[in-house]
């Protein structure tokens, strides 16, 4: 009751006038009209564009190597201990130079949740999560990645958070490659705010 008394008569009248002339409907129509002629946000993945994630992105793991080409990992198994999914298996051995290195280093990406805890736990700056995100496979065995494969994986992105022109190729399996001109644009610029 008190609520209705608080409404000023002028507001009531203007509200009614707005109602009669469908102010809300017209507002909705003009909004969609302005959207119709604004930039689209669609990313034409995979055959025209591709999103390159930020450096902080947690994608496919890789193992860092030192100048001599040896893996950084000292097989301390801290990553295997901290992994909440129990998906890292490390078997240590002593290599020719007398260093402790992993003989086996398997990550089961089918179980991994890409939390990045292994990266945080590593004392030797060895295991990292890179920017690769296109590694779906037809068998679950293929998601079991071994030591040598991990050493060969692409490293973290230098820069990212952009959409690059890309090409779709079926030459070596299925792959989406950034095109040669290396053109990119900031996707966030296209987003209409407000």
């Amino acid at each position: 009751m008190s609520k209705t008394l608080n409404v000023k008569p002028m507001e009531l009248v203007s509200g009614w006038i707005g109602w009669i002339f469908f102010r809300d409907l017209v507002g909705g129509l003009s909004l969609t009209l302005s959207y119709m002629f604004s930039k689209t946000v669609t990313e034409q993945y995979p055959d025209k564009e591709k999103w390159v994630p930020y450096p902080r992105y947690r994608g496919h793991h890789f193992l860092n190597t030192n100048e001599e080409g040896d893996v950084n990992c000292v097989a301390c198994e801290l990553c295997a201990k901290i992994c909440p999914c129990d998906c890292i298996e490390v078997v240590p051995y002593e290599d020719e130079k007398g260093n402790r290195r992993p003989k086996v280093f398997d990550i089961n990406l089918g179980r991994c949740l890409f939390c990045g805890l292994c990266e945080d736990a590593c004392p030797a700056d060895a295991i990292k999560l890179g920017q690769l995100y296109e590694f779906s496979s037809e068998t679950s065995q293929a998601l079991n990645v071994g030591r040598d494969a991990l050493m060969g994986m692409p490293r973290k992105a230098e820069e990212g958070g952009k959409v690059y022109d890309a090409e779709f190729s079926l030459l070596e399996g299925v792959s989406v490659n950034i095109s040669a001109d290396n053109k990119s644009h900031d996707w966030w610029k296209k987003i209409r705010r407000g």
Binding site: Y35, M36, S38, T40, T42, Q44
Partner: peptide
């Protein structure tokens, strides 16, 4: 196409 552009999509391409 109109549906797409109203929703800031491209529609069929």
């Amino acid at each position: 196409k109109i549906a797409g552009h109203i929703q800031q999509r491209l529609g069929p391409m």
